[in-house]
């Protein structure tokens, strides 16, 4: 389970209220939305607590003019899923990479860049991973037309 200290540390980074979610209904325990430049700080906190990064993905909120980056963290010995979200504007979708803390994020961020065009600053190599190497389109954007 997620310790109180961790909850308050993460809640300090939250832009709006951090939510303790009902696991049975949602599938995760703790949901925090942070500012885009705070994802590294959040990753650092979770890294110290021994969490691992399950996945990074994006969601395109076309109507709001925003894109959301979702980080799924989990713990292998004291299970507790923490979801960190950050919203960036669709015009300049940029936020820092967490790959310096979690090298596993290298591929997840590259994949998110492939699909959404979200730029992870200071990422060493954002060339397409799953898409063809000359791909210049981002298929999971809602306004993408093939």
């Amino acid at each position: 389970m997620i310790s109180l200290a961790l909850k308050s540390a993460l809640a300090a980074l939250a832009v709006n209220e951090a939510v303790v979610t009902d696991f049975a209904a949602r599938g995760f325990h703790f949901d925090v939305t942070v500012a885009p430049d705070a994802v590294e700080a959040a990753a650092e906190i979770l890294n110290l607590e021994g969490f691992f990064l399950e996945a990074i993905t994006g969601v395109d909120w076309l109507a709001d003019g925003q894109m959301e980056v979702v980080y799924d963290y989990n713990h292998s010995t004291t299970p507790g899923r923490v979801v960190i979200r950050a919203r960036v504007s669709r015009a300049t979708p940029e936020l820092p990479t967490v790959s310096a803390i979690y090298p596993g994020a290298l591929w997840h961020e590259r994949e998110t860049h492939d699909f959404f065009g979200i730029v992870f600053l200071r990422h060493p190599d954002l060339s397409p991973l799953l898409l063809p190497e000359d791909a210049d389109f981002h298929p999971l954007r809602k306004d993408y037309t093939p």
């Binding site: 691992f52 292998s76 010995t77 979690y102 090298p103 596993g104």
Partner: peptide, 19 residues
Amino acid sequence: MCRKYGATGPVLRGAGVGY
């Protein structure tokens, strides 16, 4: 290393973590 890369399943259990 499993933790840093998010490896799970038999790879993680082969490293002694009973997840």
